[in-house]
């Protein structure tokens, strides 16, 4: 399994990260080394083995449908990099 520079660029796009010229090479090399190691999992026979998404035997953890206090708007917006009229403000959205 060889990870190409194009793979790295596609993954960076999915992750919303920029990859500078030299970095693409570096990350490609490192990810190949890491996945080269990870590929040892192919040796494990997992036929018929159930995946473990949770280690706990917990199920049906729920809360009653009760309203609890929300944050005062000022606190909700306190960390916002940009705001206007009680809204969070973001640059334009090009996607249709």
């Amino acid at each position: 399994m060889k990870i190409t520079r194009q793979d790295v660029e596609q993954v960076a796009l999915l992750s919303r990260l920029e990859i500078a010229g030299g970095e693409a090479e570096k990350f490609t090399g490192q990810l190949n080394a890491i996945f080269g190691y990870i590929d040892m999992l192919n040796k494990v026979d997992t036929e018929g083995v159930e995946p473990t998404a949770h280690v706990l035997p917990l199920k049906n953890v729920m809360r009653p449908d009760e309203v609890r206090a929300s944050l005062p708007r000022e606190e909700a917006l306190a960390n916002a990099p940009a705001r206007e009229d009680g809204f969070f403000k973001v640059p334009k959205i090009l996607e249709g």
Binding site: R16, E18, P81
Partner: peptide, 20 residues
């Protein structure tokens, strides 16, 4: 968007990428 560092970007995707 809601908190933390924001990088410069003229549109949302550019801003996301720069920020991260």
């Amino acid at each position: 968007v809601g908190y933390g560092h924001r990088g410069q970007g003229n549109d949302i995707v550019a801003m996301y990428k720069r920020t991260r």
